[in-house]
Nucleic acid binder design. Sequence first.
DNA 1: ATAAAATTATGCTTTAGAACATGCAAAATT
DNA 2: AATTTTGCATGTTCTAAAGCATAATTTTAT
Lengths: 233, 233
Amino acid sequence: MSIKSTLEKVVSEDLAAIWSLLNAEEKRLVTDNFEVHNFKKNQIIYAEKDDPVYLWCLLKGKVKLYKDGIGGRQQILRLYRPIQYFGYRAYFASEPYVSSASAFEPSAVGTLPMALVKEIIDDNRELAWFFIHELSKNLGGSDTKIVTLTQKHIRGRLAEALILLIDNYGFEDDGKTLKIYMAREDVANLSNMTTSNAIRTLSAFAQERIITVDGRRIKIVDEAKLRQISKFG
Amino acid sequence: MSIKSTLEKVVSEDLAAIWSLLNAEEKRLVTDNFEVHNFKKNQIIYAEKDDPVYLWCLLKGKVKLYKDGIGGRQQILRLYRPIQYFGYRAYFASEPYVSSASAFEPSAVGTLPMALVKEIIDDNRELAWFFIHELSKNLGGSDTKIVTLTQKHIRGRLAEALILLIDNYGFEDDGKTLKIYMAREDVANLSNMTTSNAIRTLSAFAQERIITVDGRRIKIVDEAKLRQISKFG
DNA sequence: ATAAAATTATGCTTTAGAACATGCAAAATT
DNA sequence: AATTTTGCATGTTCTAAAGCATAATTTTAT
């Protein structure tokens, strides 16, 4: 299959949410300016303080949006799965990125110049609503995260992180095993705790038969209990 | 002065950012549907889990957006001054409010039905961009807040909160005294700490001649030092 | 004005979770 | 296969900040 037809396939099938909102002329513009890039595991896609130029669309793989904090402590802000868009917030805010994005596993990402996206939005109210909706959802999520990460105790934060992983990536065919395999350090970075405490608390959950742990393979045994722990704090 | 002319004055002069983006017909719609409400000190404007119906525009006073957390612990998310808009995020996200808004001091607030705002946005790209920009700025702010509130130490968090107050409300005519007088509890709720620690740390800053404290009157003596403390952590 | 309530100020105690250290296991690299 | 690196697990120590108690001061209500 030629590169062009591959791209067209990707663009037409995978741009999903956005694609269906475009008219023929807009689709042509997008197709002509869309580029696919591959990133290796742990490769940085963009970094804090960079100037935003592209709309990124995750086509394959998993991407984390994170912020480097004090003493190299990383906080994961959001996780992306195909087909999701990211990297547009900073452009819309007319400021450099305040967070970084990197590939969790080998990933394929499409780019579209934000200048083009801006032009299309100017004539396409549906696309404007798409971004207004996305930004609004994300803002609600971040506001909520501020409180849970600062006020919940370790067990509550880890339970919440596991639920986030369920909601974001779901289960393998067994309906129990999390469809993401991340280092304990990343679990910690998601839940605002040290790696040691992520390990300890995962072990505790396993002991209590809430989950089972086999290396990076995490099985959710008692999701109800997990949600209960997450709610208390 | 009649109520109508008062409203017209308010609408035309104070809707500021939004007003100038509207055409004659839109201005008429807004004027016809705009209502002014007064809130007493500490009165709740809307509460978490309510359904969003209005765009709120702060005309006079000060408003805090906050979330009630564990054990009645409150986290202040954002502060508003005239003329700023709030309460639209949840509507755009098609979900109930995830935070509450209350008047810090006696305040006048204008309302516009979100259904109307939505209609106007549909035909007014400038207004769409206004909200996209606001949401994007706020999201960047919340993402940053996640890290500072979870990773910085008490002194850093308090310093940051004081800088936020400077940026939001500025100084009295002396160029030193913060133009907001809030309870220590609210200072604490802004900086993710207990009231005791807010008091203690304010005292420490006063001892170090970074600020002076006289009741709720806070004078910023050494803003550079404050920014330095905020940066370190 | 006076009482009652809320807020501010400080000292003392407790604790959740970070920091550190060590051992082991599993990959990856040679 | 041997060696280095990386990640996981667990125990111990330490500390920042919460929790609690009490008193003084300020604000609010009657």
